[in-house]
């Protein structure tokens, strides 16, 4: 699980982007650390992609992990960018 980043778009945390509830796909991609979330956030910032670093429960047997919230419309692009940056992604639908 090394270097895997949390990556989710939450249904109830969309206020920052002022996108109406329901316009987000709730995604959860892998698990990861605050460092990888920061790395991801910085890469996305540099490419002008809106994002927000967040902390969430990963699973009952793991506990918390970190991730990046993004707009659902950026999903494919973001996944490509992060994969090309050496960040392992494990996509799960929540």
């Amino acid at each position: 699980m090394d270097g895997v980043v949390n990556f989710f778009v939450s249904l109830d945390r969309c206020g920052e982007y002022t996108v109406p509830r329901g316009d987000f796909l709730s995604l959860f991609i892998g698990t990861g650390s605050a460092t990888y979330a920061s790395k991801s956030g910085k890469i996305l910032d540099s490419m002008g992609i809106k994002n927000r670093i967040v902390r969430r429960t990963v699973s009952e047997d793991m506990g918390c992990g970190w991730g990046v919230e993004i707009n659902e419309s950026d999903k494919t692009r973001v996944m490509d960018i992060l994969a090309n940056s050496g960040i392992k992604i494990n996509l799960l639908k929540q």
Binding site: M1, D2, G32, S33, A34, Y36, E60, M62, C64, G65
Partner: peptide, 17 residues
Amino acid sequence: GSGIYSVKKQMPDSLPE
């Protein structure tokens, strides 16, 4: 404490945490 994987009994595998 590492801020992640709090349920795990061991330190996480990934660096730097």
